[in-house]
């Protein structure tokens, strides 16, 4: 079935100058093998074409069940120079996991991540005096 990476993986991104790196984390060996096969540097470069001008390099860290993508010429000039609101590339991880891949149904059934439960936050906000 077709599924977005957001339902299978964790992520974190950060900047170095005009370069952004995104770590993509699997939660099982099976998902790691799958993303290692299908989430290639080329695929990520295509996905980020509207935001990133430079090359994408991929590194593997099996001990972390992680892939690490380095995106060059990615921030519109880098933190102190870019006009973008996200001047430090903090949201690039979330943008990566928009990517949809093909995954076996049984793997998805076993690996799909649960939705966040933010009930406490809603209740707490509702308890405050608001206009």
């Amino acid at each position: 079935m077709r599924i977005s990476l957001s339902e299978l993986c964790g992520y974190r991104s950060g900047d170095k100058g005009n370069l952004v790196n995104i770590a993509l984390f699997a939660y099982s060996e099976d998902v790691y093998e799958l993303i290692k096969t299908v989430v290639t540097a080329e695929r990520v470069a295509d996905h980020f074409a509207p935001l990133v001008r430079g090359e994408v390099t991929r590194y593997e860290a099996r001990n972390l069940l992680a892939l690490n993508f380095v995106l060059r010429d990615a921030l519109g000039g880098g933190g102190p120079s870019t006009l973008r609101a996200d001047n430090l590339g903090k949201t690039f991880g979330g943008t990566l996991v928009r990517l949809e891949i093909e995954a076996p149904d049984d793997l998805v059934a076993a690996s799909r991540r649960s939705r966040p439960d933010t009930g406490w936050a809603r209740s707490y906000l509702a308890s405050l005096p608001q206009s």
Binding site: G10, K16, L19, F25, Y59, N68, V70
Partner: peptide, 16 residues
Amino acid sequence: FDTVRHQLLYEVSDPS
């Protein structure tokens, strides 16, 4: 392990 690995690759290029 999950919170630690998230930080280990933060702002890293080649982890090796």
